[in-house]
Computed example of a mutant assay.
Amino acid sequence: MKIISSLTAILLAVALTACSDTPGETKLKQLLQQQYDARYAGLMDINDVKKLNGWSDSDKHYTAEVAYNIAFKKSFAAFMNEQTEQPGNPLEKMVTGMSAGMLKLQYGDFKAGDKYQVKQQTLTLRMTENGWMLTN
């Protein structure tokens, strides 16, 4: 009888967790990695994501405060070389150069293997037909 009670309690806990449908650390890591990959393809890995806090104003919006680490896969110089070698018109190259300049302002002259710690960042998410998506 105790086994049945224990199993029932475990199943109830799992069901309640699934029903809450708030993004956990795994989903937040995935969303952050997608965001960085979209901006700087193949440049960095997101690691050690910790959800510090989270709240919902409605079932369609969720806000999460997170901390995480960024590990650079290549140096700033190597990344810049890749960007300048890509084909494109002069305007595209200018935008890419400006974006890379902002990257250097934010993280400095990083090398492959360098790590950067984001101590706190607020993420705003929206529920879509395909699940949670970052809005910022």
Rank of each mutant, 00 (worst) to 15 (best):
A9P: 12
K93V: 06
N81R: 10
G42A: 13
Q34L: 09
L123H: 02
V118F: 02
V49M: 07
Q120K: 12
L123A: 04
E82K: 10
N89K: 12
T22D: 06
D109Q: 09
Y107P: 04
N53E: 13
K93D: 05
G131P: 06
M1E: 11
K111Q: 14
A77S: 07
L123T: 03
K74C: 06
Y116S: 02
S6V: 10
Y36C: 06
L105N: 13
Q30K: 15
W132S: 00
T26W: 15
L103W: 01
N47Y: 04
Q121G: 05
P90A: 15
M94D: 15
M44K: 03
W132A: 01
Y62K: 00
D45Y: 03
K93L: 07
N53P: 01
I4M: 04
A9T: 15
T63E: 00
Y107A: 06
Q117M: 08
Q120S: 12
H61I: 04
A18D: 08
L7C: 14
D57T: 11
P23C: 08
I3L: 12
L105G: 15
A18P: 03
K50V: 09
D45Q: 13
T122C: 01
S58R: 01
S58A: 02
T122Y: 01
K73R: 09
T122A: 08
M102E: 14
T84P: 02
Q106P: 08
A100W: 03
L16Y: 06
T17I: 14
K111R: 05
L7I: 14
A112G: 05
D59Y: 07
T17W: 13
V14T: 14
K51D: 04
Q86E: 11
Q106F: 08
S75N: 04
I4E: 08
M127G: 01
K111L: 04
Q106R: 11
K2F: 05
A78D: 10
T22E: 09
N130V: 09
